[in-house]
Each structure stands twice: as C-alpha cells, then as structure tokens.
Design a protein around this nucleic acid. Structure first.
Lengths: 207, 207
DNA sequence: CCTACCGATCGGTAGG
DNA sequence: CCTACCGATCGGTAGG
C-alpha cells in the first residue's frame, strides 16, 4: 500500500524530472533537436527509461511544451495578476517577462519565442499547442490593456490589439537581444521603453 | 580557354545553387538541422558534391548566413535606401520587411529572426556572423530615425535607440505571428502600427 | 562531381 | 527502469 504509493510518487517525480530537463535542453537544441539519447544521458538513465514515460518523441514534445507553459504561467502571468488591475498589470507582465529572462530560467531565453519560429513550418499537434499558447499570451496582454482603458489610465482611442502587439514586439526584441548578446543591460532598457510607451513615469522597481 | 571559363562558371553556379537551397532549407530545419544529405537530395546530387564546394558543415553554415544577408540586403535594406531620406526611410524599411515576408521568400519567414534564437547558445564564428548582422540592421533603423529627428520629422526628445528597438520589436512580432498563423492580414496591421507609432497618417501603399 | 565507405547517433522496439 | 538490438541517417573521408 505505502510501497505502491511510493512507487507511483517516484514515477511521477521521474517524469517531472524528465520533462523539466527536456524544457531546458529544448531551449538550446530546439524541440526537434532535442534527442532521447541526449536527454537520457543528462538524467543519467537509459533511453528506454525515457520511453517508459513517453511513447514517442512527439509525446515527449507535447509534455515538454506543456511544462514550459506551466513555468511561463508561474513566472510571468501570475506575478502580473498579483499587481493592481489596469495599467499596473500591463507594466507588470512585461517586467515579469524581463525578470524571467534575467534570472536565466533557461539557457536559450524564452522557450516559446524559439518554439514558435522552429515549429511554425511543422504542422501537427505540437505546433497547434504552441500557437494556442501564443494566442493566449497575446490575449492576456490585450485584456490588461482593455482594463487600463476602461479605468481611463490609457486614452480612449488606444487600439488594444495594436498596443498588445507592440508590447509583444518589445518582449520579443528584448529576448532576441538578450540571447544573442548576453547583455543584461537590455532588460533595464526594455523596462523603460515599456513605461514610456504606455505613459508611465515611475522608475523601475525590480530586476 | 573558353572551356576553362565555362567550368569555372558552372562551378560558381553550382555553388550559388547550393547556398540558395541551403538558406531556404535552414529557415525550415534551422542551421543545425540543415543536413548535407538533405541538401544534396534537394539538389539531386551526392553528399560529396556538396563537400566539393564546402570543407565542412560549418563552412556551409557560414556561406549560408552570408547568402541570407545578401538576400535580406537586396529585399529589405535597398528598397528602404531608395526612399527619400528621413521618416520615409523609417517607414520604408519596415514596409520592405513586411513585403519580404508577404512574398514568402523563405518558407520559415525571416531567416535571421530564427537564426538569432537558434545560434544564440552556440558560441563560434556562425553565431558571431549572425550577431553582427543583427547589430548592423538595428544600426540601419537607428540611423534612419536619427535623420528623421535631424529633419524635424520626429520630435527632438525621441530616443533613437529606443525607437529603433521598438520598430525591431514590431518586425519580430509580425514575423512570429505570420510564421505560426500563416496570416497575411498581420502584414497590413503591422504597417499601420508602424505608421501610428512614428506619427505618419498616410495610408498603406504596398503589399 | 561520383561511389563506397567510416564510426556515431537518431527514434524506436523486444524482452525482461 | 535495464541491456541489446533494429534500420536509417548524421558529418565526413578515400579514391577516383
């Protein structure tokens, strides 16, 4: 009974360890470049140890994207939701993303920025999952903008889709610059660019 | 004599054909995922036919990045330089990029947007070449902005680095959206976002 | 530019 | 979770 639970728990832990390592490796080698052999070696186990938890590479990829989404949610979305509703959340979601980069959660920067470009030309369930995440993240930013307009913290004539698009652009430009130049200064610069863009004059608070 | 020149010309042509196909394949499979065997098959030749022109995969990657830069220059930078100096060039370089996407030059969208994220964690000459391109492109946009400020087409207090950064962000967000959603409508939307951002009220002219 | 080959690694399976 | 194995493909070389 307790041994049965212990086994289940260990199995779950191993699965979690696999999927976490897979997310990290995928930001370096890509979701296609991620190999079962490499992953097994990094975890000090055999390839069939991986196949005991995932039936195929695509299954592993789907679980990897799922885990990456979970991490993104807890490191970027949740901190933003903790801020006061309205313009504060617009700024907070960008700041949280920049902090996510700055703490070097993954060696290759934002998991999804890379995954979108890598899987865009590869139709299938993995691409669909990534596209859904992308749509969802843009929708979150857009909703923050809409609330800020409702509360008259942004002008009435602001186009929420356009501003969400621009903020997503600042996020992507920051990620690209950070990944290729390994330059933490861009994170502070990006925070100020966001503030100027939405008309906030407060100085940077974190990072 | 003429046969000697013909041979040299054919060799050059084959090399150009290889490198062009390599750029296209690399926007789908990445610069690492690009394989000599795949490339040879796409060109109906043998692997050793590739090795007759490039000593190693890294040599091929360097030539591929070089060719991608050449194509980018002719499709994005040159059209912008043809526009009147100042704010027109700021808008023109963005428009030219969106047209570059719209005409589907490569299946995977912008070569460099993908290459930056893929090679960012892989130190070496290929990464350096990509980083230099990235720096150069940002510098071009920045110079267009500086000229626009000099000519009082943009306010004096505009930060050229910040605006160039934002415009690069709009470009990256457009590429990501276009690649994952295959949605040409985003190109028109992006053109209008750029115009609003720099205070131009003219309607879109191309695309 | 070709054929033929090298050792290494790929995703995946059999059998335990 | 393991060892041992499958056919296919990888980057690269020998010899022509």
């Amino acid at each position: 009974m307790s041994s049965d639970r212990k086994q289940r728990t260990d199995g779950v832990r191993t699965r979690e360890a696999i999927v976490r390592e897979a997310v990290s490796l995928a930001t370096v080698d890509g979701l296609e470049g991620l190999s079962i052999g490499n992953l097994a070696h990094a975890l000090d186990m055999s390839k069939s140890g991986i196949y005991a938890h995932f039936g195929s590479k695509q299954d592993l990829q789907l679980a990897t994207v799922d885990e990456a989404a979970r991490i993104f949610h807890s490191e970027v979305i949740e901190p933003a939701l903790a801020a006061p509703a309205g313009l504060d959340q617009v700024v907070a979601v960008c700041d949280a993303f920049f902090d996510h980069l700055g703490r070097r959660t993954f060696p290759g920067g934002c998991f999804f920025a890379g995954a979108v470009l890598e899987m865009g030309t590869r139709p299938g369930p993995v691409k669909e999952q990534i596209a859904e995440f992308q749509t969802g993240f843009t929708a979150v930013i857009r909703q923050f903008v809409v609330t800020a307009i409702d509360r008259h913290q942004l002008p009435d004539d602001v186009d929420p889709d356009a501003l969400a698009f621009e903020l997503n652009g600042i996020i992507l430009a920051t990620n690209a610059h950070f990944v290729i130049h390994q330059d933490p200064a861009v994170l502070e610069m990006a925070k100020q660019v966001v503030r100027r863009r939405v008309g906030v004059t407060t100085t940077t608070s974190s990072g």
